[in-house]
Every structure is written in structure tokens, then in C-alpha cells.
């Protein structure tokens, strides 16, 4: 029993490592990506700072200027961990029929993909989270956490954000079994999800009713939550619980949908 559990963990750990390695292969792309994150960070800082200049300082949506700048750099860093815009691999594999290989292995396909995505996110944390945040810390005023547990909670929250985002993308990718091609669905999702997750402006800027409504969606859990944990905006426990609930919910739904896909639909290609 114990050796079984060890082998199981070993298996998914290995897959995660392979995910890390896969993305670590493309070094130039990584450097280019991190540089792009920084450039867009500068643009966003410029725009959001103008909001504060216009109203003559103070705070907007519960954020002062320093917190807003910190929010921008954390967001730029988290972006590639959470991966709103990528993750079309599974859709493509379903569309081309290559998914039969994933379905013929002695593993849970969802768990295997999650493990691989975690490995990818691990690499992104090193190569894509650190540079913009470091840049922001050095060049701009930065909101430092006032107790040492905050960074730890932030990492846990970032991991949960990645799992929630994975869960949502996995669910949408599976629609390819029925729609034959879910690039349209994913395209719409990519535009909507990043805005509702608080990428362009902090969710604190949204009107009160919208903020309340968003709590009933997984979107804040994908980006705004880890940032708010770091800048200590709101209760960290509430934010983390919200993330856990959505992670469990989305993964379970994915598991169910996968099962019915295999039961009811065509696995394409000869």
C-alpha cells in the first residue's frame, strides 16, 4: 500500500519534472517573454499612476499608489504561471486525435496534465515571476509584506491560482470532444478571464456589485487573490479558502466531463 502511494507520487513528480524540463528547453523564448512582461509592466504602471495623479493622490479601490505599482509587477510575474493565454495543447490533441495516447496510459489523464502544468509553472516561477518582480522592487516604490509568512502564503496562493486556471482550461479544452474544435471557446475565454481575474485593473476598481458577483466565479482566484495575499488586502484565509473551493470544484467537474466524453463521443482520427 505504502509502496503504491510512493510509486504514484513518484510517477506524477516525474511528469512534473518533465514539464519543467520541456519548458526549460526554450531559453531564448523565456528571456524574450520575461523582457516583454517588464515592458508591458512599465506601460501599465504609467497608465495606472495617471489615475492617482488625476485625483491628486490618496487611494482608489482600497489601493494606494505603492500598492498599485506592486500589484502591477506581481501581476506581470504571475501571468505566465497562471497562463490565461496558452494551454491550447489539449484542445489540439483532441482535435487531431492524438489524445488516444493520453487515454491509453496507466494514469489519470487529468492528473498527468496537471502534474505537467505544475512543472511548467515551476519553471515559470523562476524564469518569469522573479525578473519583473525584482525589476519592480528595485526601480519602483514597493509594498513589502510586514510579516515573513506573507511570502509563503503568496506562493501557496500562486500555486492554487495556477490549479484553478488549469481546471478551467481543462474543462474548456474538453469541449473539443463535442465541438470538435474548441479554439473559439478558448479564444473568448482568454479575453474575458484575464480581465475578470484582475489583470488589466485591480478588481478593487470594479463597482461593488461586480466585485460581489465575481466572488461567485473562479476568476479572482486566478490572479487577484495571490496579489491580495501579498499586499495584505483583505483576509488571506478567506482568499485561500475561495481558491481551494474553486480548485476542487473545477477539477471534479473536469473529471466527470472527461468520463462522459469517453463514454459518449468520438475519439477522432483513424
Amino acid at each position: 500500500m505504502l509502496t503504491d502511494v510512493r510509486a504514484l507520487i513518484g510517477c506524477y513528480l516525474r511528469i512534473a519534472l518533465a514539464g519543467f524540463h520541456r519548458y526549460a528547453t526554450y531559453r531564448q523564448a523565456t528571456v524574450a517573454g520575461a523582457a516583454t512582461n517588464i515592458v508591458f509592466g512599465l506601460i501599465r504602471v504609467g497608465i495606472l499612476a495617471a489615475v492617482y495623479t488625476a485625483q491628486g493622490g490618496g487611494s482608489v479601490g482600497g489601493y494606494d499608489l505603492t500598492t498599485t505599482v506592486t500589484y502591477v509587477w506581481l501581476g506581470q510575474g504571475l501571468l505566465s504561471i497562471v497562463e490565461f493565454w496558452g494551454g491550447t495543447e489539449l484542445t489540439n490533441r483532441i482535435r487531431t486525435g492524438a489524445v488516444v495516447v493520453d487515454l491509453s496510459r496507466p494514469w489519470n489523464p487529468q492528473a498527468a496534465l496537471l502534474a505537467e502544468d505544475t512543472g511548467r509553472a515551476g519553471f515559470a516561477a523562476l524564469a518569469r515571476l522573479v525578473p519583473p518582480v525584482l525589476f519592480g522592487m528595485v526601480v519602483f516604490p514597493f509594498r513589502w509584506p510586514d510579516n515573513p509568512w506573507v511570502p509563503v502564503l503568496f506562493l501557496v496562493s500562486a500555486l492554487l491560482a495556477m490549479v484553478v486556471s488549469f481546471g478551467a482550461r481543462f474543462l474548456l479544452s474538453l469541449t473539443a470532444f463535442w465541438l470538435l474544435d474548441s479554439r473559439g471557446v478558448l479564444g473568448v475565454y482568454q479575453v474575458v478571464s484575464s480581465t475578470l481575474a484582475g489583470l488589466e485593473i485591480p478588481l478593487g476598481y470594479f463597482p461593488g456589485w461586480a466585485r460581489t458577483a465575481l466572488w461567485f466565479t473562479p476568476f479572482p482566484a486566478m490572479l487577484q487573490s495571490p496579489i491580495d495575499v501579498f499586499v495584505q488586502h483583505g483576509s488571506a484565509v478567506a482568499l485561500l479558502v475561495h481558491q481551494v473551493v474553486w480548485a476542487v470544484l473545477l477539477l471534479s467537474l473536469g473529471q466527470l466531463l472527461l468520463r462522459s466524453a469517453v463514454r459518449k463521443v468520438v475519439v477522432q482520427g483513424g
Partner: peptide, 28 residues
Amino acid sequence: GVVFGQRSQLWWDLPLAESFQLLRHIYR
């Protein structure tokens, strides 16, 4: 064992030997 002639079960970005190591863990 299953071989799908037109689909790869190997990891595109990784060396062949690494795919084999990964499979060892997957199949235990």
C-alpha cells in the same frame, strides 16, 4: 502495449532516453 503509428507517445521536446525514463515511472 499500444503503438499508434500516426501518433507519438514520446515527449516531443525531450530526448528519447528521457521519454523512456518517464515511461518507467508511469508504468512503475
